[in-house]
Amino acid sequence: THHSSMSPEEFISRIMEAEPPEIYLMEDLKKPFTQASMMMSLTNLADKELVLMISWAKKIPGFVELSLADQIHLLKCCWLEILMLGLIWRSVDHPGKLIFSPDFKLNREEGQCVEGIMEIFDMLLAATSRFRELKLQREEYVCLKAMILLNSNLCTSSPQTAEELESRNKLLRLLDSVIDALVWAISKLGLSTQQQTLRLGHLTMLLSHIRHVSNKGMDHLSTMKRKNVVLVYDLLLEMLDANMTGG
């Protein structure tokens, strides 16, 4: 079924099925952390998650119909935001903690061992508290994640060729489907019409906060790499270099 003919309920059920499995770091964590050991664990986990993220994106109805160039651009623009929203979702029921994976959980204070990371941890914890206050539902979470992916490159590229224009139009229709799905998810919560509108506004406004933290995180990771605190390799290196050179 094409996404344009799916009901919002059907669309949500497809993106719920696309959710990646729980991922484990699978390392013996030696505490206390050093700056290098914590950065290594964080980047190892990110690298594993990135591979699953590609698979997740491909399962979002309509994504693989976009041009390959658009698929690449979207993923390279939003990967850290997607990782951060996943982290926020896993941490939402654990105040003061960041649940990177079931076997890699950090308290705020543990961020002290990595220069400059505490500020990012605090921003992530603040976003997590806000989602906790709003009692974010799983259906809403999956819609927000798809919105981050599809919206990530919208204002930084302008289509030149007919093919690019076609892909751009497909992207806009796909965003319509995701927004419809989010509106539908909110409508299931038993709120008044006005409260539903406000909730939609509050949830989507949080995305700008996530973009901001992601930019901070990207700068931080680039600095850590430049200072040789951590070796960045494989897919993560490709994504990071893409971000450093591609803007």
Binding site: L52, I54, L68, I72, L75, K76, D234, L235, E238, A242
Partner: peptide, 24 residues
């Protein structure tokens, strides 16, 4: 072509039908 070269792994994963779990 440069986009494909710059993002070899990403490009491969997007085009590959093999389970990314196997590739990981």
């Amino acid at each position: 072509t440069s986009l494909k070269e710059k993002h070899k792994i990403l490009h491969q994963l997007l085009q590959n039908s093999t389970s990314p779990v196997d590739l990981a």
